[in-house]
Design a protein around this nucleic acid. Structure first.
Ligand SMILES: [Mn+2]
Ligand SMILES: [Mn+2]
Ligand SMILES: [Mn+2]
Ligand SMILES: [Mn+2]
Lengths: 227, 227
DNA sequence: ATTATTTTTTAGACTTGTCTAAATTTTTAT
DNA sequence: ATAAAAATTTAGACAAGTCTAAAAAATAAT
């Protein structure tokens, strides 16, 4: 006669990372391919196939050979919890430990796998239950619910539009540092003073003060809500 | 012609845990055996032997077959850094996130492996550079230096001694919870009012107020410094 | 409708860390 | 000094995750 001591089947970091990658790919495309996952995970398609079999066995994903994958409710729950932890940790680093928004991602990639419900609940409380992370991305609550901001690209607005910056598309340190140096940040009011028809570059004012030029490439990576 | 991109050889969690285990065993005994490591790591002697070979290859330990192991300077540095991170995280959990001293160990076992110098420096700063963790254990600084308290066991003192509690031997939640319930904690002044000669149990007063009986077994797990 | 191309999966191998069982060395007891 | 016991190491195997190369399936192009 046996007694089962441990029922909770912990997921490995790797499994968690795959589920998160699949979740993020599903935000953009309705069907997620092996190759897309391989690229996002920085690995080879053959490795992805192996993992997909395992994740399907564990009922985290719906997977049929050659047909691409989607997340089951169970898989989505795990993915959202990892994203919740990632974004809360990023917020903690910025708000409490003087990290810049371009420095937090790599550390959060590690911290997101720490397994403690109490810890993440307390961090959430300590931060006063933030709804968005330092990059403007929504933080899911403990049930996986989050606020969607119906924002658009700054590059899509027309002359004289006034908007508020709500997020970034490109999360790279290089882009975030560029924004810092240009003194453009989340929550800032941006007014489009002029659009150069040749290259779609913009003259904008930030918070009614500093006026500057930004390229269309930059504008395509800034998320805003019209005021 | 090749260019070496990544020189930093990250240590695995497992390697870090072995080095920490060896360090802690060396605090008690001058020679550390394979079996002792196996017991501490909750694994089998054969697995330990495999790992010892690897750690010796990497110059973390001095190891000769059948002769036991010791840490090299390099290995000790890694071990002390893990211990530093473990204790700082424990302190953070207690001081900032309302954890009790009996709840922090398992989470700290995970957090101690997070790899970010800036993170741990900022946590240290955020906590105002604590010298001791919630259990009274010293926190090594970034160079591995720490304060040793020359404390002794409460069970070794004689009647009418007055002392201050500085730490615990047993770190188990069960023991820590017992102390909470008995209202005995770090920094408390303990006076030995009487010692029962039959079983060496003690009548003590804590902070000149509550008087209570504790067993010799309990007294053997309380570290104090005579006042 | 066949080819050619791309995508995906399989086959087989490697690494890390673990295990059990067997062999070896060291230590203890006679 | 020799035998018995204990500690340690080796041998061989396994699971997770990765890889390259080859096979199979799906898609695109003629
Ligand atoms: Mn991030
Ligand atoms: Mn973010
Ligand atoms: Mn601890
Ligand atoms: Mn501690």
């Amino acid at each position: 006669m046996y007694i089962c001591i441990k029922l909770i089947s912990m997921n490995s970091f790797t499994e968690e990372n795959y589920l998160k990658a699949i979740y993020k790919l599903l935000e953009k495309e309705s069907v997620v391919t092996t190759n897309a996952i391989a690229e996002k995970m920085n690995t080879k398609a053959a490795s992805v196939t192996d993992m997909l079999k395992k994740l399907a066995d564990k009922k985290f994903i719906n997977y049929q050979k050659y047909q691409g994958v989607s997340l089951t409710a169970k898989g989505e729950k795990v993915a959202l919890n990892i994203i919740r932890k990632h974004r809360l940790w990023e917020m903690f680093l910025v708000e409490k430990l003087n990290f810049k928004w371009d420095e937090v991602h790599d550390v959060a990639e590690q911290l997101e796998h720490i397994d403690s419900d109490k810890l993440i609940a307390q961090i959430d409380h300590f931060l006063n239950f933030p709804k968005f992370d330092p990059h403007g991305d929504p933080i899911p609550d403990a049930n996986g619910k989050f606020h969607v901001q119906k924002s658009q690209l700054l590059s899509e607005l027309k002359k004289n539009s006034v908007c508020v910056m709500t997020g970034v598309v490109d999360h790279s340190p290089a882009f975030l540092q560029y924004l810092d140096q240009a003194a453009i940040g989340l929550g800032d009011e941006i007014k489009i003073k002029d659009i150069v028809s040749f290259d779609k570059s913009l003259q904008i004012s930030v918070n009614k003060k500093n006026s500057l030029f930004i390229s269309n490439e930059v504008a395509k990576n800034i998320l805003v809500i019209i005021k």
